[in-house]
Simulated assay, not measured.
Amino acid sequence: MSAYPGTMIPRRPSRIFRSRWAALFWAAGVIFTAVTFIGFGDKESHQAAAALEDATGANISDGDLAVLRNFAGG
């Protein structure tokens, strides 16, 4: 597989998918490159994303979720 210098797309993309192994190696290279440049992130950003807020910006508690679960019948 020869690629253009500096890109992840080979000259003939159809050749990648003729073989499952070639496709897997190509996909692994794309994922490796993404993780190398972007990284996995830090725990603080994941915890901040996990904090749920409603439309008004107030935090959603477990009690609020229980009320919704009972209302939905689950």
Results as ranks from 00 to 15, higher is better:
Leu24Gln: 12
Leu24Asn: 08
Leu24Trp: 06
Leu24Met: 15
Leu24Gly: 08
Phe25Ala: 09
Phe25Met: 13
Trp26Gln: 05
Trp26Thr: 08
Trp26Pro: 09
Trp26Val: 09
Ala27Gln: 05
Ala27Met: 10
Ala28Gln: 07
Gly29Pro: 10
Val30Gln: 09
Val30Lys: 05
Val30Ile: 14
Ile31Asp: 04
Ile31Tyr: 11
Ile31Met: 12
Ile31His: 07
Phe32His: 13
Phe32Cys: 10
Phe32Met: 05
Phe32Asp: 12
Thr33Asp: 10
Thr33Gly: 10
Thr33Glu: 03
Thr33Tyr: 13
Ala34Glu: 15
Ala34Met: 11
Ala34Val: 14
Ala34Asn: 09
Ala34Cys: 13
Val35Tyr: 14
Val35Phe: 15
Val35Asn: 13
Val35Gly: 07
Val35Asp: 14
Thr36His: 12
Thr36Lys: 11
Thr36Val: 08
Thr36Asp: 07
Thr36Gln: 09
Phe37Pro: 09
Phe37Arg: 12
Phe37Gln: 12
Phe37Tyr: 15
Ile38Arg: 15
Ile38His: 14
Gly39Ile: 01
Gly39Thr: 03
Gly39Ser: 04
Gly39Tyr: 03
Gly39Ala: 05
Phe40His: 07
Phe40Glu: 06
Gly41Phe: 06
Gly41Thr: 00
Asp42Met: 00
Asp42Asn: 13
Asp42Glu: 11
Lys43Trp: 06
Glu44Asn: 08
Glu44Gly: 08
Glu44His: 09
Glu44Thr: 07
Glu44Ser: 11
Ser45Leu: 09
Ser45Gly: 12
Ser45Thr: 15
His46Gln: 11
His46Arg: 13
Gln47Gly: 03
Gln47Trp: 15
Ala48His: 06
Ala48Tyr: 14
Ala49Glu: 11
Ala49Thr: 01
Ala49Gln: 08
Ala49Ile: 05
Ala50Trp: 01
Ala50Cys: 02
Ala50Pro: 07
Ala50Gly: 04
Ala51Lys: 13
Ala51Tyr: 03
Ala51Met: 06
Ala51His: 04
Leu52Cys: 06
Glu53Asn: 10
Glu53Phe: 14
Glu53Leu: 11
Asp54Gly: 03
Asp54Lys: 00
Ala55Gly: 06
Ala55Trp: 10
Thr56His: 10
Thr56Pro: 02
Thr56Asn: 15
Thr56Tyr: 12
Thr56Val: 03
Gly57Met: 05
Gly57Tyr: 02
Gly57Glu: 01
Gly57Val: 08
Gly57Asn: 02
Gly57His: 04
Gly57Gln: 02
Gly57Ser: 06
Ala58Gln: 01
Ala58Glu: 06
Ala58Met: 01
Asn59Pro: 13
Asn59Gln: 12
Asn59Tyr: 02
Asn59Glu: 09
Asn59Trp: 01
Asn59Thr: 14
Ile60Cys: 05
Ile60Pro: 04
Ile60Ser: 00
Ile60Lys: 00
Ile60Tyr: 00
Ser61Val: 00
Ser61Lys: 01
Asp62Pro: 15
Gly63Thr: 04
Gly63Ala: 12
Gly63Glu: 10
Asp64Phe: 10
Asp64Lys: 03
Asp64Trp: 07
Asp64Pro: 11
Leu65Cys: 12
Leu65Ser: 06
Leu65Asn: 03
Ala66Ser: 03
Val67Met: 11
Val67Ser: 04
Val67Gly: 05
Val67Ile: 13
Val67Cys: 02
Leu68Asn: 08
Arg69Pro: 00
Arg69Asp: 08
Asn70Asp: 15
Asn70Ile: 09
Asn70Arg: 12
Asn70Pro: 00
